[in-house]
Design a binder for these strands. Sequence first.
DNA 1: ATCTTGATTTTGATTAGTCAAAATGTATCA
DNA 2: TGATACATTTTGACTAATCAAAATCAAGAT
Lengths: 220, 220
Amino acid sequence: MPSSTVENYLKQLYVAQQDAPGELVTMGRLATIMGVVPGTATSMIKALADSGLVAYEPRSGVRLTSGGEQLALHVLRRHRLVELFLVKILGLDWSEVHAEAEELEHVISDKVLQRIDECLGHPTVDPHGDPIPSARGQINRPPMYSLADCDLARPVRIARIVDQEPAFLQFVNQSGLTPGSGVVVEKRDPIAQAVTIRPQRGSTITLGSGVAAKILVEAT
Amino acid sequence: MPSSTVENYLKQLYVAQQDAPGELVTMGRLATIMGVVPGTATSMIKALADSGLVAYEPRSGVRLTSGGEQLALHVLRRHRLVELFLVKILGLDWSEVHAEAEELEHVISDKVLQRIDECLGHPTVDPHGDPIPSARGQINRPPMYSLADCDLARPVRIARIVDQEPAFLQFVNQSGLTPGSGVVVEKRDPIAQAVTIRPQRGSTITLGSGVAAKILVEAT
DNA sequence: ATCTTGATTTTGATTAGTCAAAATGTATCA
DNA sequence: TGATACATTTTGACTAATCAAAATCAAGAT
């Protein structure tokens, strides 16, 4: 059984790899993500490499092996199913479940996970719209546009929020931009780095383009 | 935040103290319960004593302080609410939830615990009949007789099973002796150390007195 | 009063995960 | 081609929790 620490390194490596597909994750980046000093990341990665979970290339970076990826996906599955469970069954708030799941993901047994999955009807996305890997580690990641790059004037549906900060999620909530809700991008001003949108319900809002890029949409 | 290890020591000290009220728990006993060598128990207890969670008397034993007891009760509350939750909401089997709760009890936040508690309607006993401490650390422990010492021929109700072994609990299940079910003790043979009982539904069974002592009952 | 026995405590080592700070590489810029 | 800047790795130290084995203590038996 991998420790919680190992599970966290693998999980974070997985999501870091998604951001820059094909590239190695540098030690500096990994250390920042994990909140440790770079030397700690180096020694941890060497241990993970010895267990065959990552491929480590000294002085250039690290990448998950397929074994490491399977484990990472399993952790991610637990995390996301737990999040949805906390929202749907226990009625916790959208914005706070990430932190809770961060702990629970390491102690949920396969049996409990299976019950949770059944109880939720084998869902495919969590409350933030993040895809839930299948029990066999399959994950489907349909290409998506964000409010920063989708078509103008065409109605779209919010599909995913790529930020787990409670404060940010609360803002998203109050602006009527939760996954599932409809919205139209009215205009973009590249100089002002601003995106003006009209939610289906709620008044017109202008977002900075950094924020707009964290809100993914799909065609209605 | 106390570590899982600390929480486990406190929890086990609490239950060990219940078995022999007023007495100190010896290092040997504690070591056996925790599955560590005696020296480990000694050094752990010294650390707990430094944090004010236990009162340690070298070479004679240890007892929880009131602070340590509050913490232990909090852990026990989480453990037992989680057990009931797993049975009632997720439909897990009676006999297997102890092991699951053993892990979950250390990572359930106050907020989640509160939702679980509400969701179950503020229950007072877990699936094995063990009392659930209140949020303020109150616990009511009504005096109880067991099948080994209650009145003969008087109908009683099974209230609590004092053993968490899955195999034992499955036996209890199959014998129709789950908490809530009715039973009559027909006779006891002190020489054979045997107790013969007739469950309300199910056929007459004879138990060894050690086993009978682990099944607590209350008047119907 | 001394011996023996068995529990308890102490000592020294180990593992996982971490940090601080020194040492080393690498890449870029002049 | 250096020199410099910055990332990376190494080294040494620390904490929590543990074990093995030696040392110590307390009590009862002789």
